[in-house]
């Protein structure tokens, strides 16, 4: 009877140890951090006809600097992904495909602008993003654009190729861990005049 109890305790202890090991196994990097503050505000003011026609582009309105520290000893599973998403304050009643309305001018009867008029371009020197250099659009609030994809394969810093996602830093591998963000808007003539707002979020996460 006592032996059975002893076995049972050992099994429980092993289970707890296994769980604890699994727990530490999910944290594969020591730290992930977007160092720079990518945003103050990007204010697009359309106050002339030529701006409506040609649009406004802000180059480098946001700079995302990534820093991912490996564990000690190094963990070969430490890799990361970088996402971009958009929010429009849906709890305030904003439709999923529209900008949040802060104020309207006049008594126009058309609709607020659609989210898809915001063009976003990501670039870095090594073109590590699969969407590097090509303007992207969101259609609905919550849509995600993957800047660095979760491919399940680790590509080490220094490779200077697509989807570099190993540990590293913009300080040591600037061409791979620094992303310049450009915003462009060409509103056209179909939307109500007013002041509108969107929030673009950059999310960095480790992936086991």
């Amino acid at each position: 009877m006592r032996e059975k109890k002893t076995y049972f305790v050992v099994i429980v202890a092993l289970f707890a140890l296994l769980s604890a090991w699994q727990s530490s196994g999910q944290i594969v990097c020591a730290d992930v951090e977007i160092v720079s503050d990518p945003g103050d505000r990007a204010d697009f003011v359309f106050d002339s006809f030529s701006k409506y026609l040609s649009g406004i582009t802000f180059h480098g309105i946001a700079n995302v600097n990534v820093k991912v520290d490996d564990q000690l000893p190094a963990n070969p599973n430490c890799k990361w992904m970088l996402l971009m998403t958009v929010e429009n304050n849906p709890s305030g009643g904003t439709a999923a495909d529209e900008w949040e309305t802060l104020a309207t001018y006049g008594t126009g009867t058309t609709s607020p602008p659609k989210i898809d008029i915001l063009d976003v371009r990501i670039t870095n020197a090594c073109s590590t993003s699969p969407v590097d250099g090509v303007y992207q659009n969101f259609n609905l609030a919550g849509d995600i654009i993957e800047i660095i994809e979760n491919t399940g394969i680790r590509i080490n810093a220094g490779s200077c190729t697509t989807n570099v996602n190993g540990p590293g830093s913009y300080l040591t591998n600037y061409d791979e861990f620094h992303f310049q963000i450009d915003f462009r808007i060409t509103p056209g003539f179909t939307y109500n005049p007013g002041i509108y707002q969107l929030q673009v979020k950059f999310e960095l996460a480790e992936v086991p």
């Binding site: 727990s23 990097c29 697009f44 808007i185 979020k201 999310e203």
Partner: peptide, 21 residues
Amino acid sequence: GVFAQLQDEKSVTVTMDLQPI
């Protein structure tokens, strides 16, 4: 442990002022 994951996020606010012309 299963749900633990290191992550960080930053955001930029985009404001658009469509003035009637």
